[in-house]
Design a binder for these strands. Structure first.
Length: 396
DNA sequence: CATCCACAGGAAGGACGGGGGT
DNA sequence: ACCCCCGTCCTTCCTGTGGATG
């Protein structure tokens, strides 16, 4: 048995593929960000007042996923901070990870080294403590709220409003907010007061094109892989596949990393192009798998209904899905939830990319959603079966 | 041109289980 | 011990709606 472990470890210890895999990890912030020089300059110049201990303007940053918004922001802040560690403080919060008002406030407090219980307090109490903490803090603070659009959509812009108002509640203004969002239209849904306060500076990040992606990949590949392991064609392929997905650099890096991992697993000394394709389906499979496993039971049931009805081909409507869902609940002998809730669940499944639910008006035939599965049916079925044995009665 | 379909999706609220402060 | 708060799912009730049809 220990042979197996030795074997596995040995492939890890001396990798013929990777020099250092970390450079391909999503959270790695590189020393240089090719093709984002202009954005770096802009962000840096907005934040420059920190050097004099003054509060910079608030910033709104737009751009699709994987266009370097987070990387540029972190890059500029960490560089500034390294140069002037005594001048200011910055806090980065990803609102997808900390996805409730409570958790955001708790994270902020924690970053200011104030311990708070992870539940139990009222939001108002957290605000009180936060304001007190900021009041006692004498440096400017930059708060980065990443991916706020999803958060605001789910809750409201109350936190943004309150955070932007903190300055007027304390003696000296010193809190700057950097809001990062994937959704450009999202700003319109904000309270005008928040909009004007947070939108003091606006910045748009365009997607990378295939050439730029290639450039980025080449630089990273050099750091991450051993020499001669990755051919230019592999890099071009990763760039091309990611460019198709609106120039998502993270996607491109993921492809390259996973392709490398596959080569490593197969004890190959080179990353072949076919591994990139395998990586693509593997990434997709893992994503779908993770999402489905964490779904509540009735969401899984709704998904099962969609899968079953998709057998008939064509587009589904909310009504059709609900009917199928009801028959499943009867089959399994569980209580059904309302169609109103199922409608929301379909939207949730759309948001995580498992299916697409597009609202359409079909005139005489009413307003409904056109629902289509967006991922491989077999993966869905397999994961559903694995996640809850009650599904065995449906796919026997 | 009005009608009316088949829902969309907002608002309010409730049950429940996680966990407080005092 | 007491009462309070929050997030997660969910319900009930509701008003709104684009365009094929009559």
């Amino acid at each position: 048995m220990s042979d197996i472990i030795d074997e596995v470890i040995s492939t890890f210890r001396v990798s013929s593929i990777f020099k250092n895999r970390d450079y391909l990890m999503p959270d790695y912030v590189p020393d240089e960000l090719p093709h984002r020089e202009e954005q770096i300059r802009k962000v840096a110049s907005i934040l420059a007042p920190l050097y004099r201990g003054e509060k910079p303007n608030n910033i709104f940053i737009y751009g699709l996923t994987g266009t370097g918004k987070t990387a540029v922001t972190k890059f500029v802040l960490s560089n500034l901070h390294r140069k002037f560690p005594e001048k200011f403080r910055y806090i980065y919060i990803n609102t997808r990870q900390s996805d409730t008002p409570y958790r955001i406030l708790a994270d902020l407090l924690e970053a200011l080294s104030i311990k708070v219980p992870f539940t139990g307090l009222s939001i108002a109490e957290l605000y009180r403590r936060l304001i007190k903490a900021i009041n006692e803090y004498n440096l400017p603070i930059v708060i980065v709220l990443d991916e706020i659009d999803a958060f605001i959509k789910k809750y409201n812009d109350d936190i943004l409003y309150r955070l932007s108002r903190i300055n007027s509640e304390i003696n000296k203004s010193k809190v700057s907010i950097i809001g990062i969002t994937n959704d450009v239209k999202f700003v319109d849904s904000l309270d005008p007061r928040v909009k004007s306060s947070l939108g003091e500076e606006e910045l748009v990040f365009p997607p990378y094109n295939a050439d730029e992606l290639e450039d980025i990949l080449r630089k990273r590949a050099q750091m991450a892989f051993n020499d001669g392991v990755v051919s230019d064609n592999v890099i071009k392929l990763c760039a091309a596949l990611a460019a198709r997905e609106h120039g998502d650099a993270r996607r491109a890096l993921d492809l390259l990393r996973v392709a490398g991992e596959i080569a490593e697993r197969l004890r190959d000394s080179k990353v072949k192009e076919e591994y990139v394709y395998i990586a693509k389906t593997e990434i997709e499979r893992d994503r779908v798998h993770d999402i489905i496993l964490t779904l509540p039971f009735h969401s899984k049931l709704v998904l099962a209904a969609v899968v079953l009805k998709s057998n008939d081909g064509g587009v589904l409507t909310t009504g059709a899905v609900y009917e199928e869902y009801l028959s499943l609940t009867r089959k399994l002998g569980v209580e059904a939830i309302t169609q109103r809730r199922v409608s929301d669940i379909l939207n949730e499944l759309d948001m995580v990319g498992i299916l697409t639910a597009k609202v359409v008006n079909r005139g005489r035939y009413g307003k409904t959603k056109e629902i289509k599965l967006a991922v491989d049916k077999n993966i869905v079925v397999k994961t559903l079966l694995e996640s809850d044995n009650r599904f065995a009665d449906i796919w026997s």
